[in-house]
Amino acid sequence: MSRRLIAALVAAFIVIVVAFNALYIVTQTELALVLQFGDPIKVVREPGLKVKIPFIQNVVIFDRRLLDYQTPDEEVIASDQKRLVIDSYARYRILDPLHFYQTIGSEQAMQARLDATINASTRRVIGNVPLNALLSDQRAKIMAQIRDEVASETKSFGIEVVDVRIRHADLPAANSEAIYARMQSERQREAKQFRAQGYEAAQGIRAAADRDRTVILADAERQAAITRGEGDAQSIKAYADAFGQDPQFFAFYRSLQSYATAFDANTTFLLGADNPFLKYATPPIAGSQH
């Protein structure tokens, strides 16, 4: 009884060990490479529960997802000698685990390789374009060129580089200071211009208003002078029409009117006794012959 039990337990243990060694799971996110005595014999792409020959074969698992890699900051010189601090990221996936396993082995080694490749490619491509090309629609084209170069250079490792994109592309700190200074001076220029333009427009408005006022008043004066002249002319004509009836009588009549208004109480008359006005008054005063 007890020996049978021990035998059964041992058998069960062996079965379990063998089963665990023969069965393996490839998940949805993995690729498996089956090695027989270290020699790769097949690639398993379908996820699920898989069987292998226990102890003879073993399995290396690779991630089949899109893998990420982020390069550190690198100082790069553009073709116009401007310095840039660039960091990029790469997205790649393992297409051929066999190649990958044989040429590079691990993801860590792959990242070191990618870093060198991206760095070299970035320097080459950016070194051929001026900075302002990177700051334009050409940026996408430049990134595509880097991506294509990196992709073709790393193809032999069994990977597919899906994308290499520049994340940051900034000027070094010292250059930033210069840019700030320039931005500041540009803004000062702009501010001065706005103020001066405002002054210009304001002066224009004031001057136009002053001119309009002068013109309006002068026009009015002209019209007034003409009107007054018309009035004078018409009144002269009216006078002439009336007085022309008898110029002699007019002279007499008008003279009398003028005397009445011209001589006032302060006027002293020195009348000769022979004055026609006194012709009837002489005898009582001086006994004249009149």
Binding site: A220, T227, Q234, A238
Partner: peptide, 27 residues
């Protein structure tokens, strides 16, 4: 101001004309 100037002139015109006509008629 312009209207004032013009109206004053118009007034003057009417005034001197009326004066002339009156004086003439009186004469």
């Amino acid at each position: 101001d312009a209207q004032k100037i013009i109206q004053e002139a118009n007034g003057y015109k009417q005034q001197v004309l009326a004066q002339a006509q009156g004086e003439g008629q009186r004469f």
